[in-house]
Amino acid sequence: MKREAQLIETIELGDLLPRVERQKKAGDRLVAISCAVVEGENEITYSFEDRAHRFLHLRIVVPPGATIPSVTPSYWGAFVYENEIHDLYGLTVTGMNVDFGGHFYATKVPYPFAAAASPKVTPAGKEAQEKECLDR
């Protein structure tokens, strides 16, 4: 059983487009763009893979509601991820080639995964869960 090396590199927002373009020039494939809310900040991770299965991640950290540039000029297919990030996290992505304008996913509440919508996960979470079970 082998585990893949976790090559995660945190870069500045301004370096994003040149770095993505460099990956594209090197012939890498865009595997995924993921977003996570960590302590109130949005971590956006761009994952690439080269032809020898080397899995590389570039990460930017932006505040909630920030504006990020689109990587669709380099990777045409990235619009699905960027629309998803817009619809679930409320970040604005500028320059997308196919912009759904917030209608990619139908969600009951706007931006359900955004930092403000996250409940606090505390060590006392167990108590809360028990209570929730009983109240139901």
Partner: peptide, 27 residues
Amino acid sequence: VHYVKANGTKNLVRFRVRTPTFTNLPP
């Protein structure tokens, strides 16, 4: 691709799945 981020509690902070159909849409 399954991504997991945990902070030492029994609940994970983030779980993200990138499924094959999602990435096969642009092609």
